[in-house]
Structures are given as C-alpha cells and as structure tokens.
Amino acid sequence: MNSRAGTPLRYRAMYSAIERIQDSVPGQLEITSTGIVHDLVCPVGPHELTVARVNRRMEKAMPDGIMAHTGAPDVAAESHGVLRRPDVMVIAEADMEVPGTFDPRTLIAAIEVVSQSNPDNDWVGKTRDYPLLGIPVYAIFDPRTGTGAVFTDIHPTPDGPRYATRKDFVYGEDVTVAEWTIPTDGLPRYP
C-alpha cells in the first residue's frame, strides 16, 4: 500500500473534495485506501431489490437491538484514510447513537450488492479495505452471476490485514452472515 494513501492529511483533502462535488456528480464517492472511487450506482431495480430483500431477511433473523441498516451515514477511519458506505450494515442500535460517521469497528458485518458499473469496487477494493477497518464479516451478493461470498477471520499479512476465510454460495442456498442464516432464493439477477 502506498504509505501516503492512508495519511490523515490526505484523507481530509479527499474528504473535502468529496463534500464539494458529491451533489453535482451521479452516484457515490468513497475514499479507499488507494484513493477516491466513483461508483455510478445507477438505481437499477435488481440492485435495490437485492439490498431490500437481504435487509429484510437479516432483520427477521436478528434479535431486537441489532439492525440491518441501509443508507447513511458512512463508516470511516481517518487514521486509515478510508470512508465507505456499505449497502447494508449489521450494527447494534446503541452503536448508531453517535454523531457523524459510524466507527467501522462497531459493525458486526458489512453487506454489499455488486454494482454493474464497478464490480471491482466490491470484489477487490472492499475485500482490501473492510479488514483494514476491522469489520469482522463481509458478505457480497453478485446479481451478475447469482453467486456471492462471505469473508471472515481477519489476519495480518505483509500487505495489511486480510480475510483468511472465504465461503462461496450460489443463489438458492442459505448463507450465514455473522451469526444469522438467511435464504438467497428469489434474489434478482441483472439482465
């Protein structure tokens, strides 16, 4: 990793740039450990329907006090130079009662639905950034292929923290995200 990519000064400069331009560009801007990424996040039905169904299924499986939250705010770690917005964040309600961004170390899991416009952001960038942020479980649902994966067991490597375990699944199978198992049947695919 570029040693300057994660500096607080560089992060603050990128954050300031995003604040200035976010409302004038389509999609979403995030700060990664390697720079700014622009995900067009075209509001396509299959992406949003997958997010909604995964969110609902997680909510049904989880106890009171734990949320499958979609939307703002972001998760950020200035010390690592990363600001991300997972499609679904599994988090305790008590950990949501904070001003500003969520502390990524309070997330139980991050769930992403692969974007048609930038699939490497989910499959490559976030598998690099989420363990760096200390998010213990990362689940990916990919409407392009009808498959996904759950990453767990953060461990140190020469290139920084990485997930040691990857469990692949295909739509139609049950998948376990953190402590909760949900069905994947009926999730839409991209045309």
Rank of each mutant, 00 (worst) to 15 (best):
I66C: 03
S79N: 09
L40A: 06
P46H: 02
P8E: 13
T152E: 14
Q22V: 01
I140N: 06
A92F: 00
R166A: 15
L107D: 05
A13S: 14
Y190L: 09
K60T: 06
V54D: 00
R128G: 04
I36S: 07
P73G: 08
L29A: 05
M14W: 14
I18Y: 04
L83H: 09
R53A: 14
V90H: 04
G134H: 03
P86H: 06
Y15R: 15
R166S: 10
R56L: 10
V25M: 11
R57N: 04
G160I: 02
M96Q: 06
A149L: 10
H80Y: 04
D185Y: 12
R162D: 07
Y190G: 01
P104L: 06
P73E: 07
P191H: 09
I154S: 05
H47Y: 07
V170F: 00
V51K: 09
I108N: 01
L83N: 09
R189Y: 12
V90A: 06
L187Y: 06
T147D: 08
V51W: 03
G160D: 05
A5Q: 03
Y163K: 04
G35M: 03
L40P: 00
V170I: 06
A92C: 13
K167D: 13
T127F: 02
S117G: 00
S3C: 00
H38F: 08
E93M: 03
S24G: 11
V37T: 12
T70Y: 00
V98Y: 03
M1A: 12
K167Y: 01
I31N: 11
I18F: 04
R128Y: 10
A61V: 06
N121K: 11
P191V: 09
Y138Q: 10
G71H: 01
P46E: 02
R189L: 11
Y130E: 00
A13C: 11
V150E: 04
P99I: 10
